[in-house]
């Protein structure tokens, strides 16, 4: 089964899919990029090491964009033909779960590549390293496609297996979307602040340590409980993806 999971994953990286993903998640994608731009404004106030900073933020931001699009073009739902093929529910569930795990694994590898660039530039700090890994894992776990689809997308294509009109999703979509957006923003900012203070020429190392501890506590007290409360939606996504009826946007 894994060979087909891997092939399905890379098969989705077609230009048409990327274009369609941009079109159907444009507001949210644009919002994320705008937020990143505000971060980059910081560059204009730094007179030294601008190129280095661009590289660092790129090393952090590009994997983020990759994770985002990887999620958008790899929805939980399977191709329609797989709902017609002789597979029982358990086999289909396994396929969905394996695809989800593989997607997260690839996104984490890309994130870690970016993190390696950060470490190379700023040196290794265990607290920063652990926090950014956990934050990236949270981001990659939490972003199923459907959260960010327009409610009445109506631009389904045969290539992409989106489901955005299923009634049940409309009810809890907003709730889960708020949680995901909250976690996403917190993780992104904590990551960036970690990077920033790692680089900062702070005379008082005690202040830097204090800020790091606060950010770490934010992760423990806000992010992780949100992730735990979100697990229900992930299980629901997986369960719904076992049945064609739940993912049929043309119903």
């Amino acid at each position: 089964m894994w060979q087909y999971v891997i092939r399905d994953y890379f098969r989705a990286y077609r230009w048409n899919n990327v274009k369609h993903a941009w079109k159907t998640t444009s507001r949210t994608s644009a919002s994320i990029l705008v937020v990143l731009m505000f971060i980059l404004v910081d560059f204009f106030w730094e007179e030294v090491n601008v190129v280095s900073r661009i590289i660092i933020y790129g090393a952090y931001g590009l994997p983020l964009v990759f994770s985002w699009y990887a999620t958008v073009i790899h929805p939980m739902a399977l191709p329609k033909m797989l709902y017609l093929c002789p597979m029982d529910k358990n086999e289909r569930r396994q396929y969905v779960v394996n695809s989800y795990i593989f997607k997260i694994a690839v996104s984490m590898i890309v994130s870690m590549s970016g993190l390696a660039v950060v470490i190379f530039n700023y040196g290794f700090d265990i607290l920063v390293f652990i926090t950014i890994i956990i934050n990236n894992l949270i981001i990659n776990l939490l972003i199923p496609t459907e959260i960010f689809m327009k409610e009445n997308a109506g631009d389904y294509t045969g290539d992409l297996w989106y489901f955005s009109n299923f009634d049940a999703y409309k009810e809890w979509n907003k709730e889960s979307a708020i949680k995901v957006a909250l976690v996403f923003v917190i993780t992104m900012f904590t990551n960036l602040i970690f990077i920033d203070i790692t680089d900062a020429d702070i005379a008082d190392r005690g202040s830097a340590t204090f800020v790091r501890v606060i950010l770490f506590l934010i992760m423990l007290s806000i992010e992780i409980p949100l992730v735990i409360s979100y697990r229900y939606f992930i299980k629901l996504h997986i369960r719904e993806a076992e049945e064609y009826e739940a993912v049929d946007i043309n119903k």
Binding site: R11, R14, P79, K80, M81, L84, G158
Partner: peptide, 11 residues
């Protein structure tokens, strides 16, 4: 099964 929508993968 042969349906109106294409079931094979285009790529």
């Amino acid at each position: 099964t042969v349906l109106v929508e294409e079931l094979f993968l285009p790529e």
